[in-house]
Amino acid sequence: MSDERRLALALVSPALLWTLAFFAVPFAAMLLLSFAHMEGRTVVQGLSLANYAKALGEPSHLKALINSVEITVTVTVVSVALAWPLAATIAWSVPARWQRAALLMAVLPFWTSYVVRSYSWALVLGKNGVVNQAFGAVGLGPFELASTRFATVLGFTHFFVMLLTLTIYANLIQLSPNYARAAQDLGAGRLRTLWHVILPLTLPGIVTGAFVTFVLCIGDYITPQILGGNTELTLPQLIMLQMGRGGNFPMASALSVILMAVVTLAYAASARWLRLDRL
């Protein structure tokens, strides 16, 4: 091995070792633990699939997985649908010198604390909250908005619209206006240009943003815990419950591995368009 290569390896190894020691090894430990089981309050290591069977077989556990997937897919689709026009409006309708300011404004609430942001939605949607008071003023309601799936989805959507607006804007602004011009010269109307030319060209930005949304959303504990109430559980809530109540680490591990598997599936489905290195 040449000196140069040896040096390069020396530069890479601290980061690699850190990732292996504090990411790969912990994950392996968790994977191993997921095949263990509890006897009373002690963990007995073994190679049983009982935790997985229970996680996917028992309706109360399976329901959490289904809830999580449903909520995450809804949030991802709704967020993309709201963020794309927002990014496009900023990129096309706002004068160039104001675009950065407009974008900065659109993501400013991103910098509130994550826990506090969920909490503020609970305030907005609560029984005495702003929304219900506004409805009350015109003689409607009050509606049961807090502690529902709607609240969870809304809280998530709020966060991810900001994130997706950034990634989609970055994608849109790089597009040469010649594509649209060419399409229109060839006789395509505005909508056809948008649908058949612009939209496919922004697909990498959309898919990358959507994937990140999916990963962050499906693994989040705070938003469903604060906004969803106890009406239904998501997978992360179930995981935390397993750890808290009975200290059932093996079950929590198995559920985490399942969570990880779902993310891997999402990755496989979107890998073709994914540009994680160009986020």
């Binding site: 912990p26 750890m243 591990s253």
Partner: peptide, 24 residues
């Protein structure tokens, strides 16, 4: 492969990273 390993934690939920470290 090295780049893949270094980027990998980005695709994993913080919950799982935290739980793994707690286990270890």
């Amino acid at each position: 492969l090295m780049r893949g390993v270094l980027i990998a934690p980005m695709t994993v939920s913080y919950l799982i990273i935290g739980l793994g470290l707690l286990t270890l």
